[in-house]
C-alpha cells in the first residue's frame, strides 16, 4: 500500500507543477533560460518565478531625485548587461538628453549600440516605446516617462509578449505610484560607497536595490555594488520578508 500512495503523491505533484507552468504561461511570465551569471545573482533570481529573471517583461523603476535617477539608469544597464544579449541595438527613449554615452561603457554596454531617442512629449515617448517593444530585433528598450496609466502599461506588456524584448520603464518624479501591469517595480537608492579604512577617494557605485513588487514572486531589498563588470551583493542581512519590503515601498 505504502509505495502506491507515494507514487500517487509524486504523480499529483507533477500534475500541479505542470498546471503551475500553464498558469505562468497564461500570465505571460515567460523567460528564456540563461546560462551565464546564474550563480552570481541567484539571490536576486530567487525572487522571481522559476528562479529566472523575466526577460519578456516590463520592469518599472521609480526615482524622485537626480542622484536616484542616475543610480537607476546605471542599475538598469547593469541588469541588461547581466541578463540580456549585448551585441544588438537597444533604444533609450527619454524626454531629455541627460544621459552621457561616454559613461555607459563601464556598465558593460557599448554606447554605440544604443540609439538615443529624445522626444518632446510624453505621449510621443510612449508611442515610440511601444513601437520599439514590438520590434523583436531590439535587445531592450529603456523608456523614461513620468506617468504611466494601467492601460498604457498593459499595451506595453502585450507588445513585449509578442516580440520577446525587454522593457525598462524609468518613471522620474511620477505624480502617483499607480498600479500598473508591469512585472516588477524597483527603486534604486545610492548609498555611501565603501572604502577600506584610510583610503582616500570615492568607492565603487553602491546602491540599495528595493524590489518592491514582483508578480508571483517575493519582493526583497539588497545592497549591491557594481565592481568590474558585475553586480555584487554586499550583505544578505537586508533580505527581509515580502511584507516588510512592501512597507518600505
Amino acid at each position: 500500500m505504502k509505495p502506491a500512495t507515494r507514487v500517487n503523491e509524486l504523480y499529483k505533484k507533477s500534475i500541479i507543477s505542470e498546471m503551475q507552468r500553464q498558469v505562468n504561461a497564461m500570465q505571460a511570465v515567460r523567460s528564456l533560460p540563461l546560462e551565464k551569471n546564474e550563480q552570481k545573482l541567484s539571490f536576486l533570481e530567487n525572487s522571481f518565478v522559476d528562479k529566472i529573471f523575466p526577460t519578456t517583461a516590463i520592469h518599472e523603476f521609480i526615482s524622485y531625485e537626480n542622484v536616484t535617477a542616475a543610480a537607476t539608469s546605471a542599475f538598469i544597464l547593469s541588469l541588461a548587461n547581466t541578463f540580456l544579449s549585448k551585441n544588438r541595438f537597444c533604444l533609450w527613449i527619454s524626454l531629455n538628453d541627460i544621459v552621457f554615452p561616454s559613461a555607459l561603457k563601464q556598465f558593460g554596454i557599448a554606447p554605440d549600440n544604443i540609439l538615443f531617442t529624445k522626444v518632446s512629449k510624453p505621449k510621443d515617448a510612449l508611442w515610440a516605446i511601444e513601437e520599439a517593444l514590438k520590434c523583436s530585433s531590439i535587445a531592450f528598450v529603456i523608456g523614461e516617462v513620468p506617468e504611466l496609466t494601467f492601460n498604457e502599461s498593459r499595451r506595453l506588456q502585450l507588445a513585449v509578449e509578442n516580440s520577446n524584448t525587454t522593457g525598462f520603464i524609468h518613471r522620474k518624479n511620477p505624480r502617483i505610484e499607480n498600479t500598473v501591469a508591469c512585472n516588477t517595480r524597483w527603486r534604486i537608492q545610492p548609498i555611501p560607497s565603501f572604502l577600506d579604512k584610510g583610503l582616500p577617494g570615492v568607492g565603487f557605485p553602491k546602491w540599495r536595490v528595493n524590489l518592491s513588487k514582483v508578480r508571483n514572486g517575493k519582493p526583497g531589498v539588497w545592497d549591491m555594488e557594481w565592481v568590474h563588470d558585475s553586480l555584487r551583493l554586499i550583505n544578505n542581512q537586508l533580505n527581509i520578508t515580502s511584507n516588510a519590503a512592501r512597507k518600505i515601498a
Partner: peptide, 14 residues
C-alpha cells in the same frame, strides 16, 4: 575605443 579609465558621470547636465 570608449575610454573607461577616467570617472565619467552617467548623467551629464547639458
Amino acid at each position: 575605443s570608449w575610454r573607461t579609465d577616467l570617472p565619467r558621470p552617467i548623467h551629464l547636465l547639458a
